[in-house]
């Protein structure tokens, strides 16, 4: 109950942050504007409006990721420092509140805020996708075959993959939030912002660290081991980046649900790990 109260207060506080509101509004505005995107590639035999929808989807997913990224970073870096700066933490910790309850409550609040933001964007985004798909058609046969074109086929309206996409964005940034939360226990917001940025970039380039540490890599064994450690320790944000697969689901080999399940577990374990470290440090932290 204490954790929940702290989480709720954190959500209320974060939702009223002007800068976060601006990210949200701009993102939603751009998603809606993307409705007008089209790429009429007249030379392409198969490019109908289905290609336009793909552009909208790709743009929307990317945009939501950027917005969620900014939101989690900007919100996360101030989670603990702001409480200290405002001295609210003193009144809270002077009450019979355990320090881990405070950390867990703050993280939960941040994750809830992220969930609310991503959900709002997600609903708008999916609505835009459905709207764009309405009436979209594509020719069935390529022209150059010379076969009589049987006609146009209507594309499907609701794409479940976009729901997976939104969930993946949420999961991805819960992990980033947990990393930033850990840092915010002992770093100032500005330093934390850049640390979070760095961790995110390394995490997104996970395939690179993986390549550098793989058996095939030509690097010195010590360097390889170093990259192996980096690859394991830094959150693998690339795992959540399945936009391309979602946009072209014909390449699905395994079910998206199974993959999402594993990745959800990954996000959960990683966030727990970060939270635990944050708790260990925060227990001994002087505020």
């Amino acid at each position: 109950m204490i954790i929940w109260s702290i989480a709720k207060t954190t959500v209320g506080d974060a939702l009223r942050k002007k800068v976060l509101q601006i990210f949200l509004v701009v993102a939603i505005g751009l998603i809606i504007i993307s409705l007008s995107f089209s790429q009429t590639l007249s030379f392409s035999s198969r490019a109908g409006s289905s290609t336009d929808i793909m552009l909208v989807k790709s743009f929307g997913l990317g945009l939501m990721a950027v917005a969620a990224w900014l939101i989690s970073l900007v919100m996360g870096v101030s989670l603990i420092p702001q409480e200290i700066e405002r001295r609210t933490i003193y009144t809270i910790l002077a009450k019979p509140v355990k320090r881990y309850e405070f950390i867990v409550g703050k993280y939960l609040g941040a994750v809830l805020t992220l969930a609310i933001n991503v959900a709002i964007m997600g609903v708008v985004f999916i609505a835009v996708c459905v709207f764009k798909a309405m009436g979209a058609e594509q020719p069935i046969a390529p022209e150059e075959t010379g076969l009589p074109i049987v006609g146009m086929q209507q594309v499907g309206l609701f794409d479940w993959n976009m729901v997976w996409g939104v969930i993946m964005i949420f999961l991805q940034f819960t992990v980033l939030t947990s990393v930033v939360l850990l840092f915010s226990v002992f770093l100032t917001p500005t330093v934390n912002f850049f640390m979070g940025l760095g961790v995110y970039i390394i995490g997104v380039m996970a395939p690179l660290t993986e390549t550098l540490s793989s058996k095939e890599s030509q690097l010195h064994p010590v360097l390889k081991a170093f990259y192996r450690v980096i690859h394991t320790v830094v959150p693998n944000f690339d795992k959540f980046n399945v936009t391309n697969t979602l946009l072209h689901p014909e390449t699905h080999i395994e079910s998206m649900a199974k993959y999402t399940g594993i990745v959800t577990l990954y996000a959960l374990f990683y966030s727990l790990l970060m939270m635990l470290l944050a708790i260990i440090i925060f227990r001994k932290k002087e505020v």
Binding site: G12, D13, K95
Partner: peptide, 17 residues
Amino acid sequence: KRRISYLPESPYFYEHM
């Protein structure tokens, strides 16, 4: 802590509440 309380100097609370 159940039996004590603390008023910090110039306290500040969550403004939105």
